[in-house]
Design a protein around this nucleic acid. Sequence first.
DNA 1: ATATAATTGTGAACTAAGTCACGACTTATT
DNA 2: AATAAGTCGTGACTTAGTTCACAATTATAT
Lengths: 221, 221
Amino acid sequence: MMEQNKIPQATAKRLPLYYRFINNLNHQGKKRVSSKELSDAVKVDSATIRRDFSYFGALGKKGYGYNVEYLLEFFRKTLDQDETTEVALIGVGNLGTAFLHYNFMKNNNIAIKMAFDSNPEKVGTMVSDVPVYHIEELEDRLGDIKVAILTIPGSEAQPMADHLVNRGVEGILNFTPARITVPKHIRVHHIDLAVELQALVYFLKHYPLITEDEEEEVPMD
Amino acid sequence: MMEQNKIPQATAKRLPLYYRFINNLNHQGKKRVSSKELSDAVKVDSATIRRDFSYFGALGKKGYGYNVEYLLEFFRKTLDQDETTEVALIGVGNLGTAFLHYNFMKNNNIAIKMAFDSNPEKVGTMVSDVPVYHIEELEDRLGDIKVAILTIPGSEAQPMADHLVNRGVEGILNFTPARITVPKHIRVHHIDLAVELQALVYFLKHYPLITEDEEEEVPMD
DNA sequence: ATATAATTGTGAACTAAGTCACGACTTATT
DNA sequence: AATAAGTCGTGACTTAGTTCACAATTATAT
């Protein structure tokens, strides 16, 4: 479980990104890749990429770069791509539906196993092969799913989070504007669309723009 | 434009969050608030909140806390809540539609002015009072909009970004999995749903869980 | 009045993340 | 074989962000 827990969180967040691009390269039949090439593709400084990889040991060869197949195999294991992670989606609105249509299996080996909604028109339907149950059924249907995506109105976020935690959920991806309170052993990631948009607007208005012919790089989030 | 550009990016990203909660407090008729109370609500350490506020000067009073009305007024100005920011949305799929239904005016004074799609069934309709135009019309319709939300398939992200930049867009909120390349003076924020989900799964599996009776805090996001 | 409790603002310390720059090694070239 | 070019891994440094902890101030209670 915590074999290599020295990996910085910032690094861990980049791993899925690396994985996806290495996967692409592999499909393109590429055999080797340098940190510089990867850097151009994922827009992360090449030294940062080398540092990130180095937390897992010496994955590359000096003067050569990284072997794509080896890297892919390594990250597949590291990211637990062997066992599919099942998640539940709570709230089949537009945002929830967007998730249901997204194919997380291809690159991430994550499957949305079921969805819940309170709207009787949606209950009983299938969206992208995912069954939609009534929220009342959560108790019975959830099984041992440990991860939930919350795409419901903010006002319902806290009670729903409480319910999920009681039911054994350990990780919540919260798309509601509400900042939910959970026991310490539960992990919550907030993605707040309004905050993201407003932050972008704020940066645009308040941070110096760098004109095209200057050398400096703009940090890309 | 860059009056107070000493504000750390991490702080800037929290401002919209603070603003929203202070707004809520104001609606509830609350007159004063402490950094501790705010901390409980937004799940940010109270010292961090005080530090964040302090970049803007002494907004509070020792032994008292912060005056809600004053704080709200201050942040309204700071976040440019006076002039509405107009944005365009590219791609009226489920995710795009979710954005169109979101009311950014209420707390953020941001308005999605128009949307674009290539699907003739959608072109010409209104979604939440926002007109949907054909992508071909972008040239003529965009006007002087500076911010775009990209909710299209990844394969179309780069050409569309190029197009937007040519048309004068300076900020892009990119929801596609593609990491787009833009001139240095353009700001791009990536929100990659698959990465977010997989990162959550990774943290759950690899980071030590803290049991309920231990003291330590788990970093939240 | 006086004492007690609450709370800010911030210097200093700490922690996390990012970048530089170079020795060591690999591959390609002549 | 020798040289040149390419590339990693990493120690040292830099930058960014967070948290501690406390003097100063304000509010509240007695």
